[in-house]
Nucleic acid binder design. Structure first.
Length: 303
DNA sequence: AAGGTGCGCAACCGCCGGAGG
DNA sequence: GCCTCCGGCGGTTGCGCACCT
């Protein structure tokens, strides 16, 4: 005999919520706060199960919810985060304030999946914007001439390589963000991914959806082990704050034909962490870096 | 105008894990 | 350790609407 779920109770309403039900739920949350979803039904006369109440609140009634009109920037970010994280909608939504995981999931399934031609994160970004971005990058001198680190990393979210910026770009790209790569997997205040995703605090020119990852432990902890993700091999962290990243890559997979081929058996990429604090790249540049970062796999494949 | 079709999105469902008794 | 409750997550469903024929 199959036990019925706890929430499956006789007499509960299902389907679309009425305005009256919304009102009751809003009033209930106003008084009691979020988190006690089992009570509205009993306390407020709402014939809805706890889960339905929670869902309705989180996806529709909660203050600050943005509905529709997903901007190009948001779309771009969704695509890239999806590529990075896969179908982890809650995590992706966490990067887009006002957007719910449900909305992003729906948007992906109905719009982006078609746009991208498949559900495969690996194939997504380039199909959408590759030519345009490539053209843009050509016009953006400092974004050219990536060197490649031969770290093959095919296992997670399609990321298979780490772009290493030209010397003049390293500072603003890596900055102190190398903290991401240390063994504690912590991100300090100017983390690598922060530098990719996050604008300068207080700069109102930065769209709000670019939430700061800094100090967002939930987000960080939600990610795969970024250490192993980015650098599957051994690496050492020197006390002098220079970091040697030993590519633990499968040498058979190294694309030796790459024009950026820097492969050698003892390939070591030394990322200098001297910081130029006055070098605050613009949002556009940062997004572009993220784009290049995430697009890197395709560059790799094409070479 | 009426019926068919496709699409977008809100809502539901199954599963999982944590908390507490 | 077991059970129940609950919250969270991702996958799926189905309703309502717009568009097409």
């Amino acid at each position: 005999m199959v036990r019925r779920p706890y929430y499956e109770k006789q007499g509960m309403n299902k389907g679309a919520w009425s305005a009256e039900e919304d009102k009751i739920l809003i009033n209930y949350v106003k008084i009691h706060g979020e988190g006690k979803w089992g009570r509205p039904a009993q306390n407020a006369g709402l014939k809805r199960c706890a889960r339905s109440c929670r869902l309705r609140w989180l996806n529709y009634l909660r203050p600050g919810i943005k509905r529709g009109n997903i901007t190009e920037d948001e779309e771009d970010l969704i695509i890239r985060l999806h590529r990075l994280l896969g179908n982890r909608w809650a995590l992706i939504a966490g990067r887009l304030p006002g957007r719910t995981d449900n909305e992003i999931k729906n948007y992906w399934n109905t719009i982006l999946a078609k746009k991208c031609g498949s559900f495969s994160p690996q194939s997504c970004v380039r199909k959408v914007n590759h030519e345009e971005e490539t053209a843009q990058c050509r016009n953006h001198g400092s974004m050219n001439n990536f060197d490649l680190v031969n770290v093959d990393q095919p296992s997670v979210a399609g990321m298979s390589g780490i772009p290493v910026l030209p010397q003049e770009e390293k500072h603003c790209f890596v900055d102190k963000g190398i903290g991401l790569m240390n063994n504690s997997c912590s991100i300090d205040n100017q983390g690598l991914f922060s530098s990719l995703l996050v604008g300068d605090d207080g700069d109102e020119n930065h769209p709000s959806f670019l939430m700061n990852i800094d100090n967002d432990n939930d987000f960080i902890m939600g990610l795969p082990d970024m250490d192993s993700l980015l650098f599957p091999g051994n690496r050492t962290v020197h006390e002098d704050n220079n970091y040697d990243i030993f590519g633990g890559y499968d040498k058979n997979n190294v694309m030796s034909s790459s024009p950026y081929d820097t492969t050698s058996d003892d390939q070591v990429v030394r990322v200098e962490t001297e910081v130029m604090h006055d070098q605050q790249p613009s949002l556009h540049v940062e997004l572009k870096k993220l784009a290049m970062f995430l697009d890197f796999e395709d560059e790799w494949k094409e070479t």
